[in-house]
């Protein structure tokens, strides 16, 4: 494996891919001179580059992991595809739907994956199983929120420049939620949204969105990185189904059932992540990251599509495009999935 970009996520994936028995990191590309020289000094078995094109030219790789700022995803993916590499990129896939369409057109048969790690959290996995099995009937309606205490003053850097980040909290944090909505409820049909930029004039800090799905499920979602007393990001979804209710977060799932069915007792069934998560090959920043990286490796070995392939992840960008259109038009906008 080779990693491009040694920020927080690059370090995390380097550790996991190097720590797993089934993979090894052979090369890392980091543009920053100080960081590259430090890596060179201490990582004796890994070759360090400052130019990803040179790295791709010289290394014989099974997979490429992209953990750079968002605006660099597409050019590096394009380059990796020229070498027929299997590619994992951190979320979101690209700056917007237009870039995603171009990537999907060129991606050929590579195994692809985008780091929407919440699909690998056992609480959301269980929610998906309950909904898919229709154990509580069909979902009808949901309300949800994703908050973190992160930004309370004007920030510096690419994250606050929409040309390099693709937008504000909607694409940075919100993209995780739109992926989970797609995972749980299928494709979004239309959206109606409002947003507010407070601390940074170019990107939104708060957004409220109403969503309608192809299956007629309706839901509402609020997202912000500027809510006090949220030390960690928390996605909380409350789903009303025909015969019960599911409340799910990263840490627990509460399944309320109208009657006893299989392993579910009548009333509340609470499971914590501690009950559901075990046997993690190596835990660096959370079990979900290890399990998503293992899923990528397994799909490479078996030559099959990942559950967060470029095709699946592009849907998140298409939904966000419709949301930004709705914010401007102040109208309901249909999501366009056409490639």
């Amino acid at each position: 494996m080779a990693i491009v970009g040694m920020g927080k996520m690059g370090l995390l994936h380097s550790c996991i891919f190097n720590g797993l028995n089934e993979s090894k990191v052979v090369a890392i590309c980091e543009k920053d001179k100080l960081m590259a020289s430090m890596l060179n000094k201490y990582l004796k078995n890994i070759r360090i580059y400052q130019d990803y094109e040179k790295m791709l030219e010289r290394e014989n790789l099974d997979g490429l992991v992209i953990t750079t700022p968002v605006y660099l995803h597409k050019p590096i993916i394009d380059r990796g595809l020229k070498y027929n590499l299997n590619i994992f990129t951190e979320k979101p896939l690209a700056l917007n739907g237009g870039e995603c369409r171009s990537i999907l057109k060129d991606k050929k048969n590579c195994i692809s994956m985008v780091g929407y790690c919440r699909r690998f959290m056992h609480t959301f996995k269980l929610a998906n199983e309950i909904i898919e099995s229709q154990a509580l009937g069909k979902p009808i309606y949901f309300n949800s929120q994703l908050f973190v205490s992160q930004i309370f003053k004007k920030g510096k850097g690419w994250l606050y420049d929409p040309k390099r980040s693709g937008g504000g909290v909607l694409i940075d944090l919100g993209s995780h939620a739109f992926d989970i909505f797609t995972y749980l409820f299928g494709d979004v049909y239309s959206v109606h949204a409002f947003a507010k930029a407070t601390f940074n004039s170019l990107v939104e800090d708060y957004a409220v969105i109403n969503l309608k799905f192809e299956d007629n499920i309706i839901g509402s979602f609020q997202v912000s990185w500027s809510i006090r007393n949220y030390r960690l990001p928390e996605l909380k979804i409350k789903v009303i189904l025909e015969n019960g209710t599911i409340t799910v977060t990263e840490k627990y799932i509460d399944i309320w059932s109208e009657f006893e069915r299989g392993k579910l007792k009548k009333g509340s069934n609470v499971f914590y992540k501690q009950d559901l998560t075990k046997n993690i090959a190596i835990n660096i920043g959370g079990p979900e990251y290890t399990q998503e990286d293992q899923h990528f490796l397994q799909c490479i070995n078996e030559g099959k599509n990942t559950i967060c392939s470029f095709d699946e992840a592009a849907k998140v960008n298409f939904i966000i495009d419709a949301i930004y259109s709705s914010i401007i038009s102040e109208r309901v906008e249909k999501v366009s999935y056409g490639v």
Binding site: S14, I16, N18, G19, Y42, L43, N45, I46, I282
Partner: peptide
Amino acid sequence: NVMTDVILSLDMIEP
């Protein structure tokens, strides 16, 4: 643990 586990996974004895 984040520091320890990073060091272990990248096999860095010197630090």
